[in-house]
Every structure is written in structure tokens, then in C-alpha cells.
Design a protein around this nucleic acid. Structure first.
Lengths: 148, 148
DNA sequence: ACTATTTAGTTCGATATCGCACTAACTGGA
DNA sequence: TCCAGTTAGTGCGATATCGAACTAAATAGT
């Protein structure tokens, strides 16, 4: 493999990693103490997609081991942002539902992140960022398919 | 803030986060058991930039708390991939140096990642990825400046 | 020179991630 | 109707991350 190519890819993943790290800590700085990005992400996912999903399905959606999802969900349960109900279709399983508190937590969190997003939106062309999305999505999909 | 804009930015950071997660686990799958991405990154940094830096300087370069760097370095020390020497310019401080084992570890690690990088290099236009770098670097630099 | 403040690094405790192993429940084949 | 194998979720132990508090050394102000 070409040395320049390797270098480009290394830099690419390096930039990606740093931005991910910075955005994560920026988001967590806005969340109530004790809540992390995964907590928000799960609640957000339940709003955007739909609630009532099983923990395993969530673990797969976020590509984390199910033990990690168990842990994340227990934090949300402790704070009553979600609740569990039995899965009528499978006695081993559960379903995860948003509470009112969970929905308002999400809205509040999104609102609190607005200043940071606005800062980026005003300093960068949103169109330019939007143009990155297809490439990023392709790369993400490819890597996702590779992992196994 | 415009709802569409918010959505674009959310998706952007979401894609970034997923790619970071996937690339991290892909890399770690290639590393010797017990070594993580930060371990590799530090060794790689010492080769690319130069060794003999202080732990604090490394912590700042990677934007992690110094306690995290202490922990990462202790893993590298245990495996004799780096060694510490006193800092002649500051009695409180240390300097971190690569060992021969550290250098060959880095080369071996890079070699072992080649298949994965090649897969991406052949399925995507490297030029296209290279074009993303300036934008990503700008965003990274902006966010970096924001955090405080 | 002396003291207060700052700085480099570590220790400690809390929490997140995640592999392994376990239980309970479902499924498929005789 | 059994039983073997699979699947959903959890408990536990190991390690990573990181804030708070500490020690030792440097520095700044007087």
C-alpha cells in the first residue's frame, strides 16, 4: 500500500477521532451530572425511531455489547428517564419506553446544546458540512459491513 | 437556530462518532491483547514527532487529563515499549523515550492494519477522502479552540 | 532569602466499557 | 413430549477514563 495513501487515511481517522472526542465532551458538559453521551443518544434514538424496543435491539443499533447497554439503561432507569415493560412476544425479553421525564430531558438537552451548534453553524458553511455527509455515511456503512 | 441546520450538524457528529468507534475497535482488534488505541497513538506520536517529551505535553497533545496519560504510559512501561528518564530541565518532570521494542511494535502494528486500510483505499477514492481533510481539520481546530 | 503560588506527576475513588459465564426462556428436531 | 442448542438479559471481574486531592519541585513577589 502506497505510503501517501496510508498517511491520508491515518490523518483522516485521526481527525475523526479527535472531533468525536471533542464533540463528546462538549455534549457531556451540557448534560446533567452523571449522564453521558450514550444516555442521551439512547433517549434521542427512542424519540426519533420509536420507543418500545428491546435492549438487544438498542445494543445493536449502537453497536455496543449488550452488557454495555444494560449498564446504560440502568442509569436511565435510575433517573426514571425510561421504563421497562415485559415483552409480550418473548418472556426472556423486555421493552424500553420513554417516560415524560425522558422526553423533556431530551428536549432540554437539545436546547442546551444549541449554543455550541450555533457557534459551528455560524463559523462554517452548513452546506459544506452537509456535503460531507454522503461520503461519511458511505465510509461508515462500509466499515460497518466489514466488522465481523 | 434553524431546524434543518441542527439536523445536519447532529447527523454529522453522529457519523463522526460511529466512524471513530468503528475505526477504534478495528485498530484494537489488530493490536496485541491488552494494548489499546491510546497506547498505539502515543507510541506513534513519539515516532512521528519525537520522543523525549514530558507526560504532560503528551496529555495536552491528546487532550486527555494527565491522570489518563499516567495510566496509558504505565501500560507502555510495563511492556517496555517506552522508558522514562528524568527531565534535566525540571526536577518534577520526566521524559518519555521509545525503546527498540516500542519502535518495532509500532511498525508491526502499522503493518497489521494495512489490510483494513487497503480495503478502504480500494473501495473509496483516496482523493475524495483527502479532500475532506481540510474541512475536518478546520472543524477540529475550531472546536479545540472553543473548549475551555 | 523566604514564603505563597503554581506546576508535574501520582494515588485514589467513582464510573464506563466489555468479555465471560450464568439463568431463564424460546426453538427445532427426534 | 423431550432434550439440545440458541437467545435475551444480567452479574461479575478486569481495565480505561478522569476528577479530586496529594507530594515534590519550581517560580514569583516581597
Amino acid at each position: 500500500m502506497d505510503n501517501d495513501t496510508r498517511h491520508v487515511l491515518f490523518r483522516f481517522f485521526n481527525e475523526i477521532g479527535i472531533i468525536a472526542q471533542l464533540s463528546r465532551s462538549a455534549m457531556e458538559a451540557r448534560l446533567p451530572k452523571g449522564l453521558t453521551l450514550p444516555h442521551f443518544s439512547v433517549v434521542n434514538h427512542l424519540v426519533r425511531v420509536r420507543d418500545g424496543q428491546t435492549p438487544l435491539k438498542l445494543a445493536k443499533a449502537f453497536q455496543v455489547p449488550k452488557t454495555t447497554m444494560t449498564n446504560t439503561l440502568s442509569g436511565l432507569l435510575d433517573r426514571k428517564l425510561v421504563e421497562m415493560r415485559p415483552n409480550p412476544e418473548d418472556g426472556r425479553s423486555k421493552t424500553v419506553w420513554l417516560t415524560e421525564k425522558g422526553r423533556s430531558f431530551r428536549e432540554e438537552a437539545i436546547r442546551s446544546m444549541d449554543p455550541d451548534l450555533t457557534a459551528i453553524g455560524t463559523n462554517f458553511s452548513t452546506d459544506q458540512i452537509a456535503e460531507l455527509l454522503p461520503v461519511l455515511a458511505e465510509i461508515r456503512a462500509f466499515m460497518d459491513a466489514q466488522r465481523d
